[in-house]
Structure formats: structure tokens, C-alpha cells
Design a protein around this nucleic acid. Structure first.
Lengths: 340, 340
DNA sequence: TTGTATGCGTTATCAA
DNA sequence: TTGATAACGCATACAA
């Protein structure tokens, strides 16, 4: 039987004060590293803190300070996306890094069900976080409305069309899609198709718009296969369909690297050589891009930097600065490799 | 210029009480859905709540209740792993699902630097969470020690060797590795190698031990390529090395599907057919397993279920039940496909 | 059924 | 430089 050490009650400032023979006020000053406390008091108190194992209670501190020093990171994704999307991890890491430097604790909340939505709403309303970063909000998202109502400092990564008065960071999906399609055209391809994922999101439809921009008159709706997700299997299915619709296709824009990887597999199945028979380009420059054979030409999405920028944006709001409602757009250059 | 609606101060119970003409105590009772409150009072209060936009302050509630109704989910991973590991997402989702049903808010904290460790320590100590789920703790982890000292209800996913008195959930890595290696042997392979990732973690070394168990006398250390991470590129490098060491190799155990996928690529480079020339098996049954050509034979790791079990374990501790220190081991059956 | 009063652990104001 | 003491917003025991 394990030694059943009774979980001692947490020591409070009061305990430290008693132990060291000073008042609670003085202890508080030491804990917060303020000036105007005598050397001897400080020494006695520091010893007492260790002795009684004091650790400050954040709930009490939040209550009086009216802030928690924590920032929420909301992820609102269907299962598969959260598990497969390589960008989200980097956004998370970038945001955490910046918040960490400012001594803010980042807490990620994942929203997966209706029930989650309500609980997270309570969490946000309750003062557990001072601000929030939101990735992949959907259009008409109840949490977006809540954040607006609460006046909670927030920054979105990407911008759902109904965002209106809230700041966001993002990339120029349309312009980058246009740019890489242009480069694909420049390689001399004649029949260029697109595997178009996630048309229900702004990122998806914007990339499609850019593709269309670049092709102009040569755009052929019959050469666009719309697929639901940013995923490998979506790419596999989409490319198979495209090959069936037009076996002579010689260029493909797969609007996410994971999708492109699936498309590459479908092309290989069909015995097409890359880039000799068909040139293919992706989007994201995620780890997928270097896994295909040959490596993908793609658009570099600065995921880490997006996280950092979002974090900086909420921190600046916390300092009382006016948020940039026009949005912060980061560069997303084409990186050309061997797949086209 | 946007209409600058001044962010109203948050309404309190007091405001509701004034608005509805009753005492704060009664309001509190309504908010918490208690009995013994007259219908008319309830109606008036509910109207007032909506009118003033009252939402309870969780910090204050935590303080008096001495609990936060939140559970931490600690992720302690080097960058690359967090971004690439497909299991962690499922563990997260499983845990969130179970906690959500119990009306607990799961908050994920990611630990990436020394600074993060200290901040998270403060966060855990400060009463922001009632318990914690820890994935991928390392040996000699300061947070493990902290959790012990705090007596914070906790459950680990996987078990660092120095865990001692803390409950955990996991799978039988060694047994499953042995089982799948045995099946590989049974296909008639004569020269079987292993790409062995993450030997510095218990999961890595246990899988290696199982491989060795299965091979017995036929185990040849020269046919083991140790690689640092559970990643595609590790698999690629490891398999290339193995092929160089022994071009006649005809069977491979790559101890994670991501690693196996990399190995498949290396084999393809080398012109080896799968499974005709060499049979390969993986571990995890992650989405990688269905992306290789042919699909991987592997060990099914019940990631979602591990998350659920971990969540159930901390919840039971919160109810005051004694934790199962012997560990909860879930089934991880071999799933045989076409790669061997 | 309702109101009053007290305490949860901190910080901050004001005298001393 | 230090010590009282009053908030912070809520729940609850007790009285009414």
C-alpha cells in the first residue's frame, strides 16, 4: 500500500506571514518583488515561503487584478483537420513562443461539439483568459459573436467573411494562388486543372479565385474537382476524378500540399510521370512538400510567423492599443521545386 | 471610423440583484439552479440577468469553490514531434471528449522551452486546473516532480521509467512489437532489420526489446538503424543506411508508421518491390499506414481510447477514488495489410 | 423562501 | 518600511 501522505492543504500568504512574523502585506510585497522591504524581512519571508511551501493562488490573484495573464488559443476544426493539418501545429508553436516571452500562458481550447461551444463560451466569459487567438473560425460562428459582445481582445488567423470589426492576420491566398498558377502556365502546360479543397472556407474559395484569375479565358470548370478537406485522401480522390474527366490533363494546382501529395499518388497509379507528363503545384509548403517524389513546387505559408503575429496583435490590444482592423497580411512567396 | 462602443464593465451578481430587487444570495441560487426559490423571483432574476448581460466570474467562483472545473493537458514535445505525430491529436480529441461530457474544460498547455516549464509550473500550482493529463513526459521531468509534490490529480499517457507513484495509461509496446515481428518472420523473411526511432523514450526502447524477443538468436545488431525521431525523414535516412549495410535485407520493422513511410520511400528509391522483395511493417496504425503503397501492416495504437482512459482516470481521482498505480494497459492488436 | 454576513487568497490604499 | 483594512465576485451557513 502506498504511503498515504495526506495531501496537505495549500499554504497561503497568511501562513507565511505567521511563520515569519510579519504582516501579509509585507509578504505580498516580497512575493511580487517590490521595493521598500527591509533585507531582514525579505530573508525571513523567503525562508518561510520555502518552509511552508507557499505558492500563490492564481484564482485569488486574478480576482483582484482583474486579469489572468493567460491567453486562449481556440481551435475550431473537424477531427480530421486537426489531426492532419500541419499548419496548425506551427501556428500554435509560433503563438506560444511569442506569448511565452511576454510571460503569458497560452491555453488551447479545442471545440469539437455543440457542448464544447457552450463550455468554452463560459470559460471565455469567466475571466480565465485576458484575450484570445482564434484559428479557423467558421462563418456565423457563435463564439465569434460572443467575443464581439464580450469585447474580449482577440485576433483571428484567417478571416471568416463576417468578421467585420475584429482584427486578423493572414496571407493573400488569392494573389499567391494566381502567382503559382501563372508559373505553372509558364512551363507550357496546355490543359491545367485544379483539385479544390474546402470551398466552404475563405482560404479555399480565395485560392480558387486566384487560379481562375490566372487562367482567364482558358479557365475550364470541367477541370476543377472540388473536394471537402485539406487532406491526402481528398487529393487522391480529386485527382482520380480529374484524370477520368480528361486523361490529357498536363498541369494541376492542388490547393494544399497534403492534397497535392494525394494527387501525386493518383498520378503515379495512372502511370503519369512528374513533371514530364504532368506538372503539379501545391500550397502551404508544409512537411508534405518534401515528401513527394519529386518535391513539390508550392506557396510558402508562414505558419509560425502567423502565430507570432497573432500573438503580438492580442498583446498590443492588452496594452490598450487600437487593433488593426484592416488585417495584417504576411508574405507567402512561391517556392519552386521539381514537381512542375 | 468604427462605432467605438465603450467596453462596458462586466455585470456582477450585485447588478442583477439590484435590477431584480432581490438579494445577491437569491440571485446566486438561481444561477446555480438550486431549489427553494419562488417562481416570481426566478422569473424576475432571469430577466435581469439577460438585461444586464450577467455572466458569472469563474475566478471568483474558483476561489470560493476551491476548484476550477478545468483539466490541464500537458504536451511536452520537441517541435517536430508535435507537428508531425498523428497520435497526439487523437489522444487530445479522446481526452477532450470524455472531459467535455463531464463538463470539464480541457486546456492544453504546450511546453517547448525552459521558460515554458516555469510558467506552466506556476499555472498548475495556482489552482487554474483541478487535475492534469500528461503526454510524453521525459525521464526526470521537473513537472513530474512538481505534480507529485502538489498532489495534483494526474494521469500520464505512457510511463517514463521514473514515474513511481503516479497512474498511467498505455499499451504493451514490447508485446506488440514482438507479435508483429513474429508475423513478419512467419512470412519467410530471412534477413530482418529494424529502423528504431526514439530509443531515448520508453516506447522506443520497448519496441526494440520486443523486436529482439521475437528474433532471439537470429537478432543481428548490425541490422538495426537507430534514428532520433518518429518522423518520415528519420525513416528515409534509417532505411537508406540499412540498405547500405546489407543490400540483401528482406524484412523491416519500422517502429512507427511515419518512419515506415519514409522507409518505403527509401526502398522505392532503391528499386525494391514491396512486399515481393522486402516485407515491411510499422507501428501505430496512424493515417500514414493507408498512404503508403501498398498499405502498411502495423500495430493498432488506440490513441483516442488512450485519451479517453486518461481522462476517466483523472476524473475518478477527482471523485476521490484511489488511482490505479499499476497502470491501465489497452489492447494494441496487429492489423495485417499488404506491405508484408 | 429569502436576506445577511462571512470567507475564499490576493493586492492595494492609507496611516503609522 | 510596515501593518491594517478594504475590495475583488461569488457561495453558503444561518437567521429570519
Amino acid at each position: 500500500m502506498p504511503t498515504d501522505l495526506p495531501r496537505r492543504k495549500r499554504a497561503t500568504i497568511h501562513d507565511v506571514a505567521v511563520e515569519s512574523g510579519v504582516s501579509r502585506g509585507t509578504v505580498s510585497r516580497v512575493v511580487n518583488g517590490e521595493k521598500y522591504v527591509s533585507a531582514e524581512a525579505r530573508i525571513a519571508i523567503e525562508a518561510a515561503i520555502i518552509k511552508v511551501g507557499y505558492v500563490p493562488n492564481s484564482a485569488a490573484r486574478s480576482l483582484v487584478l482583474q486579469r489572468s495573464l493567460a491567453i486562449g488559443f481556440l481551435v475550431h476544426e473537424p477531427h480530421s483537420l486537426f489531426v492532419e493539418d500541419p499548419n496548425i501545429g506551427n501556428i500554435l508553436l509560433g503563438a506560444n513562443q511569442t506569448l511565452s516571452l511576454a510571460d503569458y500562458q497560452m491555453v488551447s481550447l479545442i471545440i469539437d461539439t455543440e457542448r464544447d461551444t457552450e463550455r468554452v463560451a463560459r470559460y471565455l466569459s469567466g475571466g480565465f483568459v485576458d484575450g484570445v487567438i482564434v484559428v479557423s473560425a467558421r462563418e456565423n460562428d457563435p463564439l465569434t459573436r460572443l467575443i464581439e459582445r464580450l469585447g474580449l481582445p482577440a485576433t483571428f488567423v484567417g478571416h471568416p467573411p463576417d468578421l467585420r470589426q475584429l482584427p486578423f492576420v493572414g496571407i493573400n491566398n488569392r494573389g499567391s494562388a494566381r502567382a503559382i498558377t501563372n508559373q505553372l502556365v509558364a512551363t507550357g502546360r496546355k490543359r491545367i486543372g485544379m483539385v479544390a479543397p474546402a470551398m466552404d472556407r475563405d482560404s479555399g474559395s480565395d485560392r480558387m479565385a486566384g487560379f481562375r484569375d490566372a487562367l482567364g479565358d482558358r479557365f475550364d470548370p470541367a477541370l476543377v474537382a472540388s473536394v471537402p478537406f485539406y487532406s491526402f485522401s481528398s487529393g487522391l480522390a480529386g485527382m482520380r476524378e480529374l484524370l477520368q474527366r480528361d486523361p490529357l490533363i498536363d498541369g494541376v494546382f492542388a490547393a494544399a500540399d497534403s492534397v497535392a501529395a494525394g494527387a501525386v499518388e493518383a498520378l503515379r497509379e495512372a502511370g503519369r510521370r512528374i513533371p514530364e507528363d504532368v506538372g503539379i503545384v501545391g500550397f502551404d509548403d508544409s512537411s508534405w512538400a518534401l515528401r513527394t517524389q519529386p518535391p513539390l513546387s508550392t506557396v510558402h505559408q508562414p505558419a509560425t510567423e502567423l502565430g507570432e503575429a497573432a500573438a503580438r496583435s492580442v498583446l498590443s490590444q492588452l496594452r490598450g492599443e487600437e487593433p488593426n482592423l484592416a488585417g495584417i497580411i504576411l508574405d507567402s512567396p512561391v517556392v519552386w521545386r521539381a514537381s512542375a
